[in-house]
Design a protein around this nucleic acid. Sequence first.
DNA 1: TTCGTCAAGTGACTCAAGGTCATTTGGTCG
DNA 2: CGACCAAATGACCTTGAGTCACTTGACGAA
Lengths: 227, 227
Amino acid sequence: MASTSAAKANRALPQRARKDEDKEARRRLILDEALALYQATSYAEVKMADVAGRAMLAKGTVFLYFPTKEALFLALLEDLLFAWFARLDGLLAEDTSAWTGPRLARTVAESLEGEETLTRLLALLQTVLEQNVTAEQLRPFKERLLAALLRAGTLVEQRLPFLRDGEGPRFFIHLHALVTGLRQMADVAPVAREVLEALPHLAPLRVDFTAELTTALTTLLRGLESR
Amino acid sequence: MASTSAAKANRALPQRARKDEDKEARRRLILDEALALYQATSYAEVKMADVAGRAMLAKGTVFLYFPTKEALFLALLEDLLFAWFARLDGLLAEDTSAWTGPRLARTVAESLEGEETLTRLLALLQTVLEQNVTAEQLRPFKERLLAALLRAGTLVEQRLPFLRDGEGPRFFIHLHALVTGLRQMADVAPVAREVLEALPHLAPLRVDFTAELTTALTTLLRGLESR
DNA sequence: TTCGTCAAGTGACTCAAGGTCATTTGGTCG
DNA sequence: CGACCAAATGACCTTGAGTCACTTGACGAA
């Protein structure tokens, strides 16, 4: 548990974060350390004690900033998810001419290419993260999600002339489902990976996330276009 | 933890299951009790001690039949999943004439209509169940899955003339992804349900599993047909 | 029928990890 | 400079999965 860059950032902070900005910095620090651990392992393997250790804080302190492990990871997901939405909005706003289905499919799939952490967290959302969180913690997330969904949905409807009213947001519902499902299939647990690699004839069960998402979205949009 | 029908079945068994058939019956009993608890609550809320209690067995005995909680639920999923595949195979074999995309979409979606437990477990597969299971336990599952996928995929290719080689199995990959994702969105945790019900404007975030699966599959298949 | 054997069954125990809280202490302000 | 108080601490609590030394019922042999 060597000193990390984030831990260094911590030492720059006063020992007690009394100003709101210091609190925010410490919160960020905890999120960063949790993220680093999660990227290296899995949700179950990330221990709250380790997060605290890496951030050079006592375990109890972490619980001052996040009431549960699930709340911590929900906050992490929130950061990544809405950052992605913002980036996608940018891509959709860049070119206001009419788009083709395949172009949208590619744009979306590629925008998720490097977002393994985001998509892994997304797959945890309903089965894990929403399990130990209060309604008060969940509400703002859902509110932001809806807003982002409607905004991005509207943009998509503007780009794709063949979309009918309300099909933009629905596109994102299906996207969410596909991302969740495909990420689970593509990013298998070490045991599963071992099994799949040991038995070559199981190759059809292996899934390339971006490739599969692209074809699924392309097909889905072609289906909408050809009515 | 009153006596259940399965517990009654247990009492009909000898106290020690020495014959293979008795062992199998006891194994089934444990699975049935775990299923009953899971249907009433959630994976996290099912305690191994409760499963044992309902089956009128000591906790240690349950671990004689299933090495981990995850292995128990994987076995449960295996039962339900391959029973469903068998039923779907039946439906696909019933009428050997050419099918339309919407017909297949409806058939599949409806065959999953009453399978909430199956689809909920499926959504747990990669994020939870494969986490604490050995490769030896997982291999037979994956083998059976591949076989079922190829068989059902072949049948689908035979019914839908517009499908190209290998697109039958791929259809099931996408189906798996959609089912996993949509189930997670439709079957939200109690907290999430509370939030969504308290705030009517969040209605767009609610998902009707069968309806959404049907439209997604229909659109997907139309996309394949219109090339 | 009885008895020895041994695997099935048991439940008290261990262990790990999330979460709590009485106590300590550093920063701020009068 | 000292009092105050919220931030920080870490020993402790709780819960639940999983273990294992011991008990016991089923069955075959005598």
